[in-house]
Nucleic acid binder design. Sequence first.
DNA 1: TTATTATTGCGATTATGTTGCAATAATACA
DNA 2: TGTATTATTGCAACATAATCGCAATAATAA
Lengths: 124, 124
Amino acid sequence: MKRRSTPTKEAVIAVLNASTRAMSQEAIEQKIEIEIDRATVYRALNQFCTDGIIHKIVADDGKQYFAVCKKCDVEALPDNHFHFRCTKCHTIECLSSLINFSLPKAYAVEKFNCVLVGTCGNCA
Amino acid sequence: MKRRSTPTKEAVIAVLNASTRAMSQEAIEQKIEIEIDRATVYRALNQFCTDGIIHKIVADDGKQYFAVCKKCDVEALPDNHFHFRCTKCHTIECLSSLINFSLPKAYAVEKFNCVLVGTCGNCA
DNA sequence: TTATTATTGCGATTATGTTGCAATAATACA
DNA sequence: TGTATTATTGCAACATAATCGCAATAATAA
């Protein structure tokens, strides 16, 4: 399916580009000036995920968070880094440290969803 | 609050003890012989979590999974290991490999929620 | 056996995310 | 520029997971 550039999609990606943190749909919607329906935001986010422009993290609070793929090596394994969820300021951050692990034989990893939970530097 | 031993709680913990995998509420309910209300199962599970008997993983499908703490060093950091979610057999497994990470200064980790997603040995 | 109160089942509720559908608007092309 | 095509949107409805209030029940201590 071809992509079209729309005010909605530009607003969503602009907010994510301006953020150093991963954001929930709710947080994104609050940052956007214009009124956009929830479903539309989710559709834009899912499309960006499909296109490899952003990635999705599901945190231990069960919610989806989205962040632009800055350091993600999509060619290799997507999203191969830890995330940090701060329980005080309610943000999720992409950490630079890569994920090292060892797997039993014949196991194959396709993607990662790794979140460390605690308090971040700002809140310490 | 004092704890009471009830058929429900015994059934729930028995199912988890007999399983090598982490299980969702739904899966647990299916394994139990007697009829137990969903809310009751969740209440038992949350109580076990509070008491440090089991731990909870939220997978990238947004669902909660529960497993008995066998190797968990609750004294140190709880749940300090990776989990593996197989997209074919829909199970979640506790891996033995511990989580190594480096954090920016002043960050403090309280708990982990790390899931690797792919296909497990049985399904390869 | 009785009193206390933890636990249960039921229904209702919350929250997050998705989907169907008709209306709208971005793009390509004559 | 005007027109056709179809991606996108908004709205409402839906789906699912998990929680909560409350009255009834049952485990424990005395």
